[in-house]
Each structure stands twice: as structure tokens, then as C-alpha cells.
Amino acid sequence: MKIETRLFIAGAPLFFLAAIVYGFWTYSISPDGHWEPVGTLGILLVGAMVFMVGFYLMLTAKRIDERPEDSENAEIADGAGDQGVFAPWSWWPLAIAGSAALAFLAMAVGWWIMGIAVPLGIIALIGWVFEFSRGTHAH
């Protein structure tokens, strides 16, 4: 995870610099001499999120063994084997997507639909989180 960590942590100052440039630029082109705070804050928050992802990857890289991708002398066969635990048979992501679609429909059609979407989303999220506590293929 070394390359990912470097990529994210080195990318964060780029967003901070872009926020400063954007703030000054919007101030200079504004006819009434005001800067645009929403865009500047949005770019600053993106920089903070990029830094947080890089920091998380740095902490994770310290806890796990070196991956074949991090070694200069690694062979393709070094990456063979299990890569993690995945749930390809899970139907819960489909339920979460359906409740998210209902939530977006509520913003367009009527807020009363949100009363249906939120409970369905909570049930789907709980089902997805606790899916493996019931055992493999135990739906």
C-alpha cells in the first residue's frame, strides 16, 4: 500500500493549493469584490478527504505484511491465492440501491416517499452488515 499512500498524501496539498488559487481568482473576477466561499470550502474538504484516505492507507500498511505490488522484485505468481472475503451471492447491495433510488425519487416527486426509503435503507444496511454473522449462504 506504499504507492497508494504516497499518491493520496502527495495529492492532498494539490487540492489545498487549488482552493487558495480558486479563492483568490473568484475574488479578483467578482464585480462586487466578494470571494466565492462554497467552492473554496468544497475544494478544501476534498483535500481533507484525500489526506484522510492517505492517512488511513498509511496506518493499514503498517498493520499488514508487504504486498507483492509493493516489492520491486515480485513475480506475478506472488499475487496468487485468496485476495479477501467477498460476498458475490449477496442481494443486500441491490436492496440498498433500491432504497437509494427511492430516496432520490423522493427529492424529485414528493418527500413522503422518503418515509419509505429510509426504513428500507436501514433494514438493507443492517442486513448487509450482519450477513456473515449468520453463516455462509444463510439467507
Rank of each mutant, 00 (worst) to 15 (best):
S30V: 07
H139F: 09
A124T: 08
W112Y: 07
A87F: 10
G115C: 11
V46A: 15
T5F: 02
A18K: 05
T40G: 13
S71A: 15
T5Q: 10
L14D: 00
R6W: 06
G135C: 03
S90V: 03
V53Q: 11
L57T: 05
P37Q: 11
I126V: 11
P93F: 02
I3P: 04
L59M: 09
M52T: 14
V118H: 04
F16Q: 09
P93I: 04
V118A: 11
A48S: 06
G11R: 00
V109T: 12
A97M: 06
W92N: 07
E72G: 13
W89A: 14
I64F: 08
I20V: 08
L7H: 12
A10D: 12
W128A: 07
P93A: 04
A106C: 04
S90P: 03
M107F: 15
P31Y: 09
A101C: 05
L44E: 07
P68D: 05
I43D: 11
L105H: 01
V118K: 02
Y27N: 02
L45H: 06
F104C: 02
K62T: 12
P13Y: 01
G127D: 01
A103Q: 00
G11Q: 01
F51C: 06
M58A: 13
W91L: 08
H139A: 12
G110C: 08
F15M: 09
I20H: 02
G23K: 00
A74S: 15
E4P: 06
A12C: 00
E69M: 05
S71M: 14
P31K: 08
G110E: 08
G39I: 10
G98M: 03
